[in-house]
Design a protein around this nucleic acid. Structure first.
Length: 535
DNA sequence: ACTGATGCGTC
DNA sequence: GTCGGAC
DNA sequence: GTCCGACGACGCATCAGT
């Protein structure tokens, strides 16, 4: 290491990114990161680590950067040159400028954010501008994510990965973890769960049947819990004060005063962190409302009273992570659930059974679907509350539907798919007009080989070329799975598929044999046998 | 006051 | 959110 | 078995332009 301390230049950081991106070995990526961390000033660790995972600023800055694709394109085209030549930018220069941009709020903020970005870019070379854009868009594509950096931190500082992961779970922000880790093992281990500061949520793995789900958790007794079609929330409570966080840890308390009230009345604890699903229900019938309708409530800050009247919410709790000073992430799930049940009134709990009998579990699943819910979660009873799903503890089983649709257009892919047409416009047939109407796009479900084949065929069928997109003669039929039909404000057909993915290419079918517009509308209406409808 | 583009969140 | 592929 | 990067739908807030 040199005795002369020189801050890392942004252009040197780019060299490092390129090196990391050019190797496919994760171990080597981590080694490169570790090598440079050792050479860096500690004040540079935070930007170094955040930039490497494609985060321009720490997640904890509320509101985010407020700069996206369009603003970047504009700034790339119109960089504002400095009046006087300036020094080459260091990593910290760039980081500090980005934080300034994040804090530009209010009147003319778009314009001022653009100007700040364009000025920053004006001080950069073309290559630096491109890489800055990648960082802002979170599309570095060098194969590093938060988990790898936690590993690198652990190696370089000689701290256990377990301690680092725990801090990450509890702090929720990678930048904060860097700060705490730099203070040493004591500070790291003593990261207290902070009430009103959200914890990263434990995730689930999908399965296609109940039997498969049981198989994945190794059989035996499991909890089978209704999976509601809503939004996951984390609720922090301290002496009657309540805060609600969304899955990506943003504070949504303000939009959900009714949920706050329900929690105040139905939960008796001094201090706790709970998790559950917020779901919209139709008044009267009690049927769940479509996800689309729930979203009208979710990030709302105006006309909340009105929306509350129209779209009532319920909470279905399924977790307790913290209780009266004690963190429960290492407590087995079944014990956590006992603690939850003791303190929460019954109507606030997610509906569930505990069984080792697969038939029983399947019939519970069917009943959940009959009530208009999304499916079930199968949970291992002894599982801790952990990140990274080391071993599968929570398995989700959801219903799906299938239709044959026609491909009428396609877009060129990006990254490893850049040589293929990989994103397809799916359409239904309307025999009345002879038209094919788009009901959504998908890029999911095909193998590399199939993409190659499709690209060739689609180009043969091309009727119009728009550069990034082509339109084709309706001829190729594909079988498509999806979760729900939504009302679409965007497509002329008026409907769109939620979570569409191709399951196979139907060489045997002609486009006239594909699903029709009328069929799709019938299916859409049929959803309301189980679901509610407002407006 | 309204509309469309943009950003960012939920799934 | 889902999927295939790379590890 | 695990992780990652391909990218989908809609709804709300904010801002720019009329």
């Amino acid at each position: 290491m040199s005795w002369l301390v020189v801050d890392m230049l942004f252009k040197d950081f780019i060299r490092i990114c390129m090196r990391i991106g050019s190797t496919s070995s994760i171990t080597e990526k981590k080694n490169i990161v570790a090598t440079y961390l050792k050479e860096l000033e500690r004040s540079e660790w935070k930007p170094f680590i955040l930039f490497l995972v494609g985060k321009p600023i720490p997640d904890s800055i509320e509101g985010g950067l407020g700069v996206g694709y369009s603003t970047i394109m504009k700034a790339l085209k119109n960089p504002i040159k400095p009046l006087f030549p300036s020094n080459p930018l260091t990593l910290n220069d760039v980081f500090n400028e980005l934080i300034k941009i994040a804090y530009i709020r209010g009147k003319d903020s778009s314009k001022r954010k653009f100007e700040a970005l364009a000025s920053l870019m004006g001080r950069m070379s073309r290559e630096e501008r491109i890489w800055l854009s990648k960082i802002i868009l979170g599309e570095l594509r060098i194969g590093l994510v938060d988990g790898h950096l936690l590993g690198a931190l652990s190696n370089v500082l000689g701290l256990s990965l377990e301690d680092i992961r725990r801090a990450y779970l509890l702090r929720g922000d990678l930048g904060d973890v860097v700060d705490v880790a730099l203070k040493g093992v004591e500070a790291l281990r003593n990261v207290p769960p902070r009430l009103f500061s959200p914890i990263r949520p434990m995730l689930a793995t999908p399965a296609s049947s109940i039997a498969e789900a049981y198989n994945m958790i190794g059989g035996g007794e499991a909890a089978v819990e209704v999976k509601y079609d809503g939004a996951r929330v984390q609720i922090h409570i301290k002496n009657g004060r309540v805060k609600i966080f969304s899955r990506r840890l943003t504070d949504v308390t303000y939009s959900l005063p009714d949920v706050v009230e329900i929690v105040r009345n139905g939960v008796s604890v001094d201090e706790a962190i709970l998790e559950g699903e917020v779901v919209a229900y139709e008044r009267g019938s009690g049927k769940p409302l479509p996800f689309q309708t729930l979203m009208k409530r979710f990030k709302r800050i105006y006309n909340i009273e009105e929306a509350m009247e129209l779209i009532p919410l319920k909470i279905h709790l399924f977790e307790i992570i913290y209780l009266n000073g004690k963190l429960l992430i290492d407590t087995p799930y079944s014990d956590r659930y006992d603690l939850l049940v003791e303190r929460v009134s019954e109507e606030l709990l997610a509906n569930r059974i505990v069984t080792s009998n697969i038939r029983e579990a399947e019939s519970f699943y069917k009943r959940a679907l009959d009530y208009g819910h999304e499916g079930v979660m199968v949970k291992r009873l002894n599982s801790p509350y952990i990140l990274g799903v080391r071993g599968k503890h929570w398995i989700k089983v959801k219903s799906k539907e299938t239709l044959d649709l026609v491909i009428v257009g396609a877009e060129w892919g990006h990254g490893r798919r850049s040589s293929w047409l990989s994103d397809y416009y799916l359409a239904v047939y309307d025999p009345n007009s002879g038209e094919y109407l788009v009901v959504g796009k998908t890029f999911k479900g095909l193998t590399d080989e199939e993409f190659q084949y499709m690209t060739k065929r689609l180009l043969e069928l091309k009727v119009k070329d728009e550069g990034f997109r082509i339109w084709v003669k309706p001829e190729i039929v594909v079988e498509v799975d999806f979760n729900e039909i939504q009302k679409s404000p965007k497509y002329k057909s008026g409907l769109a598929l939620r979570l569409a993915r191709i399951t196979r290419i139907r060489e045997d079918k002609s486009p006239e044999e594909a699903a029709t517009l009328e069929e799709l509308y019938q299916l859409y209406e049929r959803q309301f046998e189980k679901k509610g409808k407002v407006i």
